[in-house]
Simulated scan of single mutants.
Amino acid sequence: MADKILVFRRGSIGDAIVSLPALAVLKSRFPEAEFRILTNAPVMNVAAPVESLLGGSQFATKFYSLPPGGGSLGSIISLARTIRKWNPDQIFYLSEPSSPPSLIREFLFFKACGAKKISAMPYGAEQRRYRRKADELWESECERLLRIVDAPDNPERSSWLEFTAEEKQDAASILEEGMSAGRYIAFSIGAKLPDKDWGDENWSSVLNAITQADRALGIILIGAVDERSRAFGLVQKWHGPILNLCGETEPRLSALVMEKTLFYLGHDSGPMHLAAMINVPCVAIFSARAKPGVWFPEGDGHRIFYPWHMAGTVTDKAGFRTAGNSIASIRTEEVIDACLTLVSRE
């Protein structure tokens, strides 16, 4: 009988994407196993959940969702009983580590789910901290997850996520009907938290400079439905074709629509990770919420803007923190230069 493996991963699409390499490793180790995912509703209700990316993929046949805000004791017991009926053989902890008291509660919950083995629980400091790399960079959350599952290398991207022929055709149809420009970029305002938001004035300056440099260039707006009006307001002076897909496409389809863009422009967000996943260069704006590198887009060729002067004050522990007004130190002129360099490439 095939193994039953439950993977624990909280968060939204960005969290799901950085988990893909570790999931691919587990899938290669247990090719016949049935995988299910235990997740939660995103902290920000407008953020796309993990299931919106991994639903229907090779990594999950079913999803279990933790009650919002932790839920009542009754709801937690009910969920544990539901999972126990499935009778998982093993649980893998592929989420950002909780606090030590919460880890104890999570361990007890996993035992209540009937798991015969619990793997990658981040008990030790090494599992809870990011390691320093060269050139002031720290290992990414993706690399930390690979480390805790003892993976020697990052697997090929072809094993990360599979798209169906129907999804590819849907993306092609959207572009054929809505984007008349031969060259276009993707933009997402995508900051769900105030300390990750660079501000409309900065974005307007950058977008206006890009469209002045290439008046025929198109732009695709990617994001949630609540970002639709704001994103469209920022491109009122855009000269080329505009395709506003905020709230119109699910994450998997958004990724495919961005596949042939010159580059992605925007905040550190789920759409940024979607673009990087399909090898699109990113011009990404970061606050000092985490050590430099932890949430940077995977791959090469990205232009990253980070408050480097604050890097030494940021903790190397995984988990939530606020970043104050650190993002305000990033200068529009530098971002414009990076964008125009990419626009000028043939």
Rank of each mutant, 00 (worst) to 15 (best):
L243A: 14
L265E: 04
L20Q: 11
K62L: 13
S188T: 09
R230C: 07
L146V: 10
G114D: 05
D3P: 00
G223M: 09
G223F: 03
V43A: 12
L38H: 07
S72Y: 06
T315Q: 04
P251V: 08
L253M: 09
L54V: 15
A288W: 00
I336D: 04
M179N: 06
F92Y: 10
D3T: 05
F286W: 05
L137H: 11
L54S: 11
S140A: 01
F63R: 02
G319L: 06
E167S: 02
T332D: 02
G319E: 04
R128V: 01
S102E: 12
L26G: 15
V280Q: 01
P292D: 14
I148T: 14
R303K: 15
L53P: 09
A338Q: 13
M121R: 11
A275V: 07
G266K: 08
D3M: 09
S204A: 07
E248H: 08
D195S: 14
R131M: 08
S173E: 09
G114E: 11
G240W: 06
F320V: 06
F320L: 10
S19F: 08
L342Q: 13
H302N: 10
F35G: 01
K116T: 08
R289Y: 01
C113E: 06
G199R: 12
A33E: 04
G223C: 03
I285V: 07
S75D: 11
I327R: 12
R321D: 09
S119N: 07
G218D: 00
T261Y: 00
P271C: 14
D200N: 08
T313L: 14
I336G: 03
S65V: 15
F8E: 03
K117N: 14
I17C: 03
V294K: 00
L66P: 04
V280C: 10
T322F: 05
I210A: 00
T211Y: 02
F296S: 02
L274S: 10
P307L: 15
N202L: 05
S57N: 10
I91R: 01
A151N: 13
L274N: 00
K62W: 04
Q169W: 02
A16L: 00
